[in-house]
Amino acid sequence: MNVSLRVWRQKGPGTQGCFETHEARDLNPDMSFLEMLDVVNERLAVEGKDPIAFDHDCREGICGMCSCVINGEPHGPEFKVATCQTYMRSFRDGDTITIEPFRSRAFPVLRDLVVNRSSFDRIIQAGGFVSVPTGSAPDGNAIPVSKEIADLAMDAAACIGCGACVAACKNGSAMLFVAAKVSQLNILPQGKPEKDRRVLRMVQAMDAEGFGNCSNTYACEAACPKGISVNFIARMNRDYAVALLKNKPA
């Protein structure tokens, strides 16, 4: 199959970008989307042109590094699938495919399709952990956790930190990402002692990074490659309200 690509090209963070058109020919429908970009890049390199820069690593949908917006949708057309697990059989012969980086104020473009998502790391650094130094843990079975709670925490913990939720949101809100981590840890008994502090600090860090507010359109859940539920946002809002009331500034 053959497709035409409209790809965002941008030299660096401060420079202006534009769309460039490239033809991708003789593709196998069983190729992954990123393998299709590999083929295009091989040709560009041989021709002495700059290959298209894009983030990727594991190519099995778990590391969260790949980050394209394909035809207006973060991670492309398939439901609950990351860019790296998108295959060319999802497109038709002759299609024109538009490829852009994740766009958000808090994710500056570094080059072409590569963005800087270290704002996510800083949110985790603010409170996305249980403060338990190495060596200080009790026996694993000393902390019973019911299967229902463990499963719910796992649903939240499945987040791969890719940022598609932010890219999908018209406000550029990171609520789904933050809520997933707050919920995982706040639901579990291990995370209870820092419950209030965690949610207050992580929300504060999120706001400081320039992410937008949540207006409950649920575009984030629809774009999430792991299908993280927006219910966690409601859960975080409740935790946040409770924490605010309990911890009124003096």
């Binding site: 249980v130 694993g140 902390i143 796992m154 913990a157 995982q184 291990q190």
Partner: peptide, 10 residues
């Protein structure tokens, strides 16, 4: 033990 205490949802 360490991972359970960190909140790893085993």
């Amino acid at each position: 033990d360490q991972c359970v205490a960190q909140g790893v949802p085993f």
